[in-house]
Amino acid sequence: MGREPRHVQPPIHNRLQVLRAERGLSRQQLSDAVGVNYQTIGYLERGDYSPSLDLAFRLAEFFDLPIEAIFARTPFAPMSRATSTPL
């Protein structure tokens, strides 16, 4: 408990909170749709938990996006910066 774990997994960043807000979904609604507890959705959004491949696929299918658009090894750029990029 006080000791560092031997194998620290690198964090997996995600855009779940943004995608959920964009679609006007509550955590409960999203959790019902992908079959997990609503607390798990919150832990995912907070970065307290990294999903299994199966759950990542279910979320990707639900949002109709490729997995890499939702999950990444590196932090996502803020949406404001992404949208202000000149075409």
Binding site: R23, G24, L25, S26, Q28, Q29, S31, D32, A33, V34, G35, V36, R58, E61, F62, D64
Partner: peptide
């Protein structure tokens, strides 16, 4: 697994009391 199918895209309109 509980809840709806993963392929549902439309948010439910039910409100949680």
């Amino acid at each position: 697994m509980r809840g709806a199918s993963a392929s549902v895209h439309t948010p439910a309109t039910t409100t949680y009391e």
